[in-house]
Simulated scan of single mutants.
Amino acid sequence: MAELAIDSGELEALIVRMRALMAREETDISDPGGNPSDDEVPAALQELSGDMTREELVQEIEGLNDDQQDALVALYWIGRGDVEPEEWDKTLELARSRHVGPTSRYLLSHPLVPDQIEDGWEKLRESGELE
Rank of each mutant, 00 (worst) to 15 (best):
E122R: 15
L48D: 15
E126Q: 14
L94V: 12
S49M: 04
V113D: 05
H99M: 13
L107K: 03
D38Y: 11
R54G: 07
D39H: 13
E86V: 01
S8A: 11
K123A: 11
I117Y: 01
E55S: 14
E118F: 02
R24T: 09
A74E: 02
E26R: 01
L14I: 12
I117G: 01
Y106S: 08
A23W: 06
L112T: 15
D28R: 06
D7P: 05
R19Y: 07
D7I: 11
S49Q: 09
R24W: 06
P114A: 12
R24Y: 02
L4F: 02
E129T: 04
T53L: 09
S8C: 06
H110T: 15
A74Q: 02
L45V: 15
R98V: 15
G9H: 06
E56G: 07
A5S: 11
Y106G: 08
D7A: 08
G33I: 14
M18Q: 06
P114Q: 09
L75T: 00
G79L: 03
D70E: 09
V16L: 15
L92Y: 00
S8F: 07
A5G: 02
E55Y: 13
E126F: 07
D67I: 00
S104R: 07
E25R: 05
T27L: 14
V83N: 08
E93C: 03
R17P: 07
G128D: 10
P36A: 14
Q68V: 05
E62P: 03
E47R: 04
V41Q: 13
E62T: 10
Y76D: 10
E84D: 08
T103M: 12
A74G: 06
V100S: 15
G34S: 09
E56T: 06
K90D: 06
A74T: 07
Q68P: 00
A2Q: 00
P32M: 11
S30I: 13
G79E: 00
M1P: 00
V73F: 13
D28C: 10
Y106M: 13
H110N: 10
D51N: 05
L64E: 07
T27F: 13
D119E: 10
D31F: 10
S8D: 03
P114F: 07
E129N: 07
L11N: 05
D28T: 13
G79C: 03
G63R: 03
S104C: 03
E56Y: 04
T53Y: 03
E126S: 11
E26H: 04
M1R: 02
D119A: 15
I6E: 04
A2K: 00
R105K: 14
T53R: 04
S97M: 12
T103Q: 04
D31I: 15
A74R: 01
T27D: 05
L94D: 09
L107P: 01
A95F: 02
S97I: 09
G63H: 05
D82I: 15
E126M: 08
P114L: 14
A13N: 13
E87M: 06
N35W: 03
E84V: 01
D66H: 06
G128M: 14
L94A: 12
R19E: 09
A13L: 08
S104T: 01
E87K: 05
I15K: 11
D28M: 14
E3V: 01
V113G: 08
D7V: 11
T27P: 04
Q46L: 15
E93N: 12
N35Q: 09
A43R: 15
A44G: 13
E40A: 12
R54T: 08
G79R: 03
G120E: 01
